[in-house]
Design a binder for these strands. Structure first.
Lengths: 245, 245
DNA sequence: TCATAGGGTTGACGTGGATCAAAGTAGAAC
DNA sequence: GTTCTACTTTGATCCACGTCAACCCTATGA
């Protein structure tokens, strides 16, 4: 893990020009309101692959909207074990964990060369006191994170290995689709080990589950390249969790 | 599971009089600001043991502060499997999951006869546009929920059975202490099955782990009554997760 | 061109919890 | 009191996933 890359480019972000605005904080704002958000979003910041946007313990000052690329967030136990708490893609917001204690409680690491919009948090609070729709959208973003986390708990607490991987693939598929990419064919930006950490499995188990899906004709797997062949089949894997209590 | 008990008592809540205010939404507000919050907090509502405050799919209109008693929240899979996503006690806020989609995404069930303060959400947003400290405290409450969820993911994804139970007991202990109760001796309001669901274990495994802790002199367990004998021992169980990878 | 390194896959085997089953306990209902 | 009922404990057995180990694949760079 390399040191945090501090490269705050002076390039201005521009929500109004951003094709991600329907997924991101500007959702639901009028043109005028988006302009005000533009003023607030200070700089963009480039983060190289494997570098960290922030790490646990860092002072909390801003949240980040992913402009290009993708990230993972994780928490570390003293003994070094890692739990990946999420994978984030464009339009998603990073850093919400830091609000509660004024310090970040997890690490955010770029999975590929990425770029984020820096949103100074105190300014965001200020503006959202004036712009109702921004306030509401921000609350929705936070609530969505909570709901997402509950889904992960369901996955970790109540599903078996193959169900977890199926749920993971379906979730990725949906998110790629929302961004205008193919929901059926995509590249994984994370390793088997990281997937395993996220899903509460060992990398070998993840690998075996991929192979099983391939044997069953559900997906075609070539390293990190995934093609979903039988979407319905994957979904059924999930709803048929019934077998066991 | 009985039907939702709709008993909106007309009793006014009064944050200013509430001894939970340091744990709850009024934290950090001035007397004046608390008075304004008082106006907003409409009614209290009593929920009988095993009854539901809200359920997945219900329209979202308000969040709830627990005044007395305790709750569990859970999500259900189509096949009926339950994942408990949290146990909430006095001063904690319920219902944040509903903001994102205008509908609740989990069920909240009282573990004992309980009482909540009903906080109409649109009014809360309105007031927090005027009262900066309320806005900030609300954001902290949401963020804290996200951080808590990450902790549960860590637990579910990376810990073994006994570590999970130890973490659970230590967490309860801390929260009882924060409320002025004994951190060493308390009653569990949930069943072994519910603990198991929360921790991603079967009830038998929870029961066995309790017995093991008892044998080792870490805690005294009599049904739902728990007495922590060796707090440090429990903590060490957690930091010594090192053994396995 | 080959060497090296970081993933990924696959097989053989072990084990922590799940499952199945039976018996114990505490309240609530009568 | 006695009988339910809901919950808990404990033992015996099983199996899904972890562990350990070998090998493969692709990319990068001397």
């Amino acid at each position: 893990m390399k040191a945090t890359a501090v490269t705050p480019t002076t390039l201005k972000a521009a929500c109004s020009q951003c094709n991600l605005r329907e997924l991101c904080l500007p959702f639901g704002l009028t043109g005028n309101e988006i302009d005000r958000l533009d003023e607030l979003v200070g700089t963009k910041r480039k983060i190289r692959r494997q570098h960290q946007l922030y790490r646990a313990g860092d002072d909390f000052e801003a949240i980040y909207a992913i402009r290009t690329g993708s990230f993972k967030t994780d928490v570390l136990l003293e003994d070094g074990r890692e739990q990946v708490t999420g994978f984030q893609m464009t339009g998603e917001i990073l850093g919400l964990d830091g609000i509660s204690s004024e310090a970040h409680s997890c690490n955010a690491t770029a999975l590929e060369d990425s770029e984020v919009c820096v949103i100074p948090f105190s300014k965001l609070e200020e503006l959202s006191r004036e712009v109702e729709s921004l306030q509401h959208q921000f609350h929705k973003v936070m609530s969505r994170e909570i709901v997402r986390d509950h889904g992960v708990m369901m996955l970790l607490g109540s599903m078996r290995a193959e169900e977890r991987l199926a749920a993971f693939l379906l979730n990725l598929s949906k998110r790629f689709m929302a961004r205008g990419y193919s929901p059926a064919e995509f590249h994984l930006r994370m390793t088997r080990d990281e997937i395993g950490s996220y899903l509460g499995l060992k990398l070998e188990t993840v690998s075996r589950a991929f192979s099983k899906f391939q044997d069953e004709g559900l997906v075609a797997v070539h390293q990190k390249h995934i093609r979903i062949i039988d979407l319905e089949g994957l979904k059924q894997l999930l709803t048929h969790c019934a077998k066991h209590t």
